[in-house]
Design a binder for these strands. Structure first.
Lengths: 192, 192
DNA sequence: CGAAAATTTGACATGACTCAACTGGAGTGG
DNA sequence: CCACTCCAGTTGAGTCATGTCAAATTTTCG
């Protein structure tokens, strides 16, 4: 069941069939429609979420109504409003589906049990967090060092599967520019 | 030995005395002078580094000579050029001491052995990476959403121990503004 | 004390933002 | 299937925050 899920876990740690069965028993399968929210700002994030199919974004809206995208997620990625999940505090972020999506959810208590019962999963998440931390550091670096145009090009190169299926508007909010500016940047590339 | 080190580990996972002895046996103590490099760009990062005393920065220099600070580290923090360490590839970053410092180093093979021999340390690092990932996400968010002045104030509030002992220039390079701009921002605050 | 580095300040340039209007495609309901 | 609405995307004009270049001043530290 859920071969993508098994494949992703297997990239970092090997599980016997019966161990994998045990792991999956902690997760709940759920589907969401496009534009539906997996989590809304102000609520406590109850699930760590693995995306089997579809596409989501994690974003915030500030007091002036501006949105900023913290993270995208597509097949094979984990998404969460992590701070809310870990500390059980109201989330600053919304998680919204950009496409009809299928996901796996696990609650915090179940995840803790999973770590205890299957130490290999503690290892898996150690490696996962290491990797997403590196990605986040890389993103900080591009935000510090590169122009909007360069960030856009880098993004398309690094996440072509994401860039192709997500509206430019969302990409702009991820890159930290206004949709208008991204539009101008794109037209400059085209004319070159 | 190294009570700070033990204290930090104990925050996330409890170790018996003999386990702690085993853990420490994998680490090497080393001192560095101010301005000395723990790692230089182009070299492979050989150590994950825990800071017992002192202050360091992880930064890069681009082709036009501009510097950007990826991370600071003070007592109780881990620092590394993680991508280089994990993949054993040349580092894009320098790690430089801003003060005379005392650190603990562990090599990648030893860290792997440590994970195997003391599963509690795999847990410790899982939680550590989870935390630094959340910090990094928070930083991305402030870079996307806030003005330079707001970022500066937030930084001072969040890391007062760092802001107090680090030259403004370094803080500017961490916040993603030029030292000149930060100077102007500071003078605006002062006149208010 | 003296050299090197950090900080400040001024003048000017510019990338990106804001506000606003217009275009065109997607989705919805009659 | 068409009319209508709603957004995403585009484009223009003007503004603003921050960068660049350069020089003066202060601080640090050997």
């Amino acid at each position: 069941m859920w071969p993508l899920f098994r494949e992703k876990i297997s990239q970092h740690t090997l599980l016997a069939d019966e161990e994998y069965e045990l792991v999956t028993s902690f997760f709940k399968y759920k589907t969401y429609k496009k534009r539906q929210f997996i989590l809304q700002e102000g609520n406590i994030s109850k699930y760590e979420t693995f995306i089997l199919k579809g596409c989501v974004r994690v974003y915030d809206v500030n007091d002036t109504g501006q949105e900023h995208v913290l993270q995208f997620g597509i097949e094979g990625w984990w998404v969460n409003s992590l701070h809310s999940f870990i500390n059980e505090t109201p989330s600053d972020y919304d998680i919204e589906c950009l496409e009809n999506s299928e996901v796996l959810h696990i609650t915090k208590p179940d995840l803790e049990k999973l770590y205890k019962q299957v130490p290999a999963m503690e290892r898996y998440f150690r490696i996962l967090f290491q990797e997403v931390y590196m990605s986040s550091q890389h993103r900080v670096c591009t935000l510090l060092a590169k122009s909007a145009g360069k960030r856009y090009r880098d993004f398309l190169k690094l996440y072509p599967q994401v860039g192709e299926r997500i509206p430019d508007r969302q990409v702009a909010l991820y890159l930290g520019v206004t949709p208008q500016s991204l539009s101008r940047i794109r037209s400059q590339f085209a004319g070159k």
